Computed example of a mutant assay.
Amino acid sequence: MTTMSVAQAVAARKSVRAFTDQPVDLAVVEELLKEAAWAPSGGNLQPWRVWLLAGEDLAAFKARVVELRDEFPMGQGPEYDIYPPDLWEPYRTRRFENGQQLYAAIDIPREDRAARIGQFGKNFEFFGAPVAFLVGIERKMGPPQWSDVGMFLQSFMLLATERGLGTCAQEAWTSWHQVAYEMIDIPEDVMIFCGMAIGYEDTAHPINNWRSERADASEWIHRAEVRR
């Protein structure tokens, strides 16, 4: 295994939305999760909770979602707002352009609503990944602990990148939280934050040849001038 620098892993990581059927050793994923747990955590609370899915369990979980997709093509409804309501600039434009570029990469025109819904629905197949997990956090936790979960997830994704694995963090899974509670022994006081797809990237798929852009640093780096 070739060792990556942290900078290389950060530069290489992307959201993979098409995977090969090459199996992934679940023990490797568990090892990466344990390593990711060294992520910063205020007060060392370590508020993340993870439920792994693979093999027949993953297949059964996805099959239940498929059963309900005709009735709920966009999911059964989220438990939290993935984006703030009435998103403002520049964030509204960034989100709009991101979606436009994603669908353009796979030749889906804006007016083809059915194709767009179909592509969005691949979220709920974990994009064909052979291993996945759901991440939760206890409902009584606050924004600082949600930040801890984010740092844990980023650590996991960078470690997976170093191992040659592709990942996709999917907040969209909050829209199927009811199925998660129905099929998995998740306590009611834990909120599902997101899912994570894990596998080997299908490098031939055009959706993986597109990558979202980043704003110029001048838009968000500010040299503070302290009032005296």
Score class of each variant (00 low, 15 high):
A172E: 12
E201P: 02
F124W: 05
R94E: 02
E89D: 08
W88M: 02
W210F: 15
Y181H: 15
P144E: 03
V190Y: 07
W176L: 14
V135A: 13
M151S: 10
T161N: 02
M157A: 10
I186A: 04
R163A: 13
W176Y: 15
I207Y: 04
Q101K: 14
F120P: 03
Y181W: 09
P84C: 00
E138D: 11
A217R: 14
A169I: 14
G166K: 01
A215S: 14
L102E: 06
E138W: 05
M141E: 09
D81C: 03
F152E: 00
I198W: 02
N123R: 01
K122T: 00
R116E: 07
Y200L: 09
D216S: 13
D202Q: 07
M141G: 01
S212P: 08
P90F: 03
P206T: 05
H177D: 09
R110K: 14
P90C: 09
P109C: 12
H222Q: 08
E219P: 03
T203V: 15
P143W: 00
M157F: 07
T93P: 07
M151R: 10
R113V: 15
A204T: 14
Y200H: 15
Q101L: 11
I117R: 07
Q101Y: 01
E125M: 03
M157L: 07
N98I: 09
D189P: 00
E182D: 12
Q101V: 03
M141H: 08
A204Q: 13
Q170I: 08
S175V: 12
Q101D: 15
E138Y: 04
Y181F: 11
D185N: 10
E171C: 06
P109G: 14
V131I: 09
P144D: 04
I184F: 04
R95P: 01
G118A: 15
L153S: 03
P84M: 03
L87K: 01
I207S: 05
G199Y: 06
D107P: 09
Q170T: 08
R92P: 00
V135N: 02
M151N: 07
A104L: 11
V131Q: 04
R223F: 15
A204I: 05
N123G: 03
Q100D: 13
L158M: 11
N209W: 04
A115D: 12
